[in-house]
Each structure stands twice: as C-alpha cells, then as structure tokens.
Simulated assay, not measured.
Amino acid sequence: MRQAHAEDARTEARRVVRDLLGEEQPTAGALVADVRPVLGAERTARALELALGAQLTRRSAELAAIAALLVGTRELGEEWWTRSRGGKLPPPDEVLSTAVAIEPWTDLTALEMLAAWISDDAADRMWGRAVAEVDLNSWQAEDRFGLPPGVRPGQRLVVHFDAGGRLDAVVTRRPGDELGSNLDFQSLRYSRPAEAQWSWGVAAGLGPHRLPGESPDPYTREVPSEAAGILRGWALRHGATREQLGERWDTVGDVVAAIERVDWMWRSGEWFGWWRGASALVDDSAYLPYRLEELASG
C-alpha cells in the first residue's frame, strides 16, 4: 500500500514537471539546458558548481532547487537576482556567489535558500504578502495569530506556512463580539517555483544524476563489497525484491539506483537505519562502520 502511494506521488510529480518545465521525464541534462538561457551562463555555472560540491545523496535536492530558480526567474524576471531588499537582505546574486547563509534560511544549502526565497517572492506576487506565519504541525484552525487592525468578518487573510506555501484565514466574529480567525485548510497552495522544486525532486528521484563535464564520473566509483553485501542482504530480508535492488552493487551508481527503486521512505521506520547506512556507502562517509553497527543492533 505504501509503495502504491509512492508511485502516486511520482505520477503527480511528473504531471507537474510536464506542466511547468515541459519535460516528460526530468533529467539533469535537460534541466541544465533549460536553465542556461534563463539564468545566464555565469549564474548557471555557479549553481552547478554548488550542486557538484554537494554529497551525491544531496544532488537531487540541489538540482530540484535549481528547477525552482528556473521557474521563479521566468515568473519574476532576471532583475530578481540583482535587487537588494532595503538593506536587510543582499541581492540574490551575492548569495549565489558567496553561498553565505542568511536569515531565515540558515538551515538550508545556498541553492535551497535561494529556492525558498524565490518561492516566497513568487507567492507574494501572486497572492499578496502574508499577514502572519503559522506552523501546520498543529492543525488547530482557530485564532492562530493576532489579527491586523481594520479587518472585518468574512475577510480572507493570506497566511504563510512554508516556503512558497500559503493558505487563507477567514475572519469571523466570536461570542462577545470579538473578532477571530479560522484557517481554511482547503485553500492551501504553493507558488509555481515551490511546486517545481517538489515535483522535480520526486519525479527525477535520487539519481544517478550526472552533470555536464563532470570528470571523473562519481557514480562509477566502486563501493566496498562487504558493506554493500550487508546492506543489500538486510534489504532483501526486510521486504525489498531482487528487481528493486538490482543484480549487483559494484558501484555508487548501482547503489543510488537501488535506493531510488526501493522507496525506503514509504516503508516501516526501521528502514531509516538502512537509509543512513546506504547513504554513508554512497557518500564514502567515515560513519559507514557505525551505521552498519546501528543497523545490526536493530
């Protein structure tokens, strides 16, 4: 059942990618070809440099962020990159160049930070600036924020909940003639750059995603056979099929492709430990022995 949900998500993601980018099957090569004339050669080269610097298990996320920047730049224009924000935020071009984290996105990579930024700016242009921010880890609908002055019953207010994500709050009159608000969860929506980021990552998957001019090919690196055997054997014992895992795990590319086919995120919680081990194998992490110990101990 969970694997069926994974395929449903990929089907929807492919539909969104087709609508936004015109690609039937997203690939790194097609994305780069689309990005270069929109962002320009210099920005594209710098974005790819940042993507190349990421661990291979992070590459798909970095490319998905570039997809958001592509769609966002088409919507907001190239001037988005050069415009400062009243002294509070540097121009996005400066952030791309320096890769220095800025508030409120300090927990993101530089490309993810720029993707969040352009997703929010596109949402502001489409629906107006949000009057408040809410955390949807709580599904409480009533009175989640203080109302701005001058509102009236029935008025719909735009509320921020995620990068590029918005929903409405409807002003209502409470007992005692006080005004409050109810979140309208049916109004939840995302800007097009945010949709592009999600859909590209889901539709394209973990990879392999080879980038133009990349040499040597990181996906051809051989992986330790003992560690590969442990992880592959564990996956077989816990429900993955031989077809999903592939015939052999000789190279990083073999492992990355298998991770994508297994759909570990849609399986039981114990698979998270397997993912930690498999990602350490792909990224040639010094933590690999510890991840294998954790997996063995259950």
Rank of each mutant, 00 (worst) to 15 (best):
I102P: 04
A123Y: 06
G154V: 15
E103N: 13
R221S: 09
R237Y: 05
E78V: 14
A235S: 10
G150M: 12
E24H: 12
W249V: 13
E112Y: 06
L48W: 04
E49A: 11
T251E: 03
T109E: 09
R74L: 04
L179S: 02
W274E: 04
S119I: 03
R74K: 15
P216C: 14
R74N: 00
W275R: 13
D283P: 06
R174E: 11
A54F: 04
A13D: 08
A235W: 02
Y219F: 13
D162W: 08
G86A: 13
W117P: 00
A194K: 12
A203D: 03
A132Q: 10
R192I: 00
W117A: 09
R59D: 14
D284S: 09
S119V: 04
D263T: 07
L20Q: 14
W271F: 14
T251F: 00
A33H: 03
S181Y: 06
V252C: 06
W80K: 02
R232L: 13
L96D: 02
A132V: 09
A169C: 12
A228R: 07
D107F: 05
I230H: 10
P104K: 04
E294Q: 13
D250Y: 03
D177W: 01
E103K: 10
A67R: 10
Q3N: 04
R242V: 11
L231M: 12
G269W: 05
A101T: 02
S279T: 14
Y219L: 05
A228E: 05
E75G: 01
P37Q: 12
A6P: 03
V255P: 00
F145Y: 14
P208W: 02
